[in-house]
Amino acid sequence: MSVTHSYPLKAEVKNLNFYYNLVQALKNVHLPIAEKMITALIGPSGCGKTTYLRCFNRMHDLYPGNRYEGEIILYPDRLNIISPKIDPIEVRMRISMVFQKPNPFPKTVFENVAYGLRVRGENRKNFLEEKVEKALIQSALWGEVKDRIYDLAFNLSGGQQQRLCIARALATDPEILLFDEPTSALDPTATSKIEELIMQLKKEVTILIVTHNMQQAARVSDFTAFMYLGEIIEFDKTDKVFTHPSVRLTEEYITGRFG
């Protein structure tokens, strides 16, 4: 797996095993995450891609009985983010997530975007206004909502809500942005807007995206990992995976013979 050797790394997954109680959901996963690149995870339902993504912000800690083994090293400070000694909140302060379904809070557009900053104890009005505006511009939503920044977020359309959630995740200047099938609840127009946005964002942030949509992975990502039954079957540059996969199973999956 030396495809990333010429790229600086943002994170490196080594020997990761994950268990839901006694069920092992991830088996011995290795994966380098290149900095300011988009890494896509594809695979059939139940292959562990979402489980894998949720290790990065320690989401599994919310539920009892889950267990991590191995390392996810975050660079540059070489922090093992799944170590039990590390507070999950500290990890979530550096790594943001956008969910499958848009999940705005019952607050105004402004307060939704400012949420992460407020949680960090930031209450200076000017600072918040600046950050909220910047995040909304980054998420390509500013033009549509600048006149109703104090309206409730529920009044936005589904696609706008998802971009609001992206703005919320961006406002805290995360080092890595995780996307968990971010367009599966959206129509094609909203989907293409989000995809465009994701490609824009890689200038500023390292991105990891889980998708069940292979065209999406092919369109947006630089690297692709194909997962099956909790293992990484193939990891390579995206064009390589989609044009000359080196493993038979990958080829069968991307040509739609199973999954």
Binding site: L62, R92, S96, F99, N103, F105, A169
Partner: peptide
């Protein structure tokens, strides 16, 4: 309150 709303808050680093 749906779990994904709760997770959204935790994912932002909230206690």
């Amino acid at each position: 309150v749906p779990m994904h709303i709760r997770e959204g808050s935790y994912a932002m680093g909230a206690t």
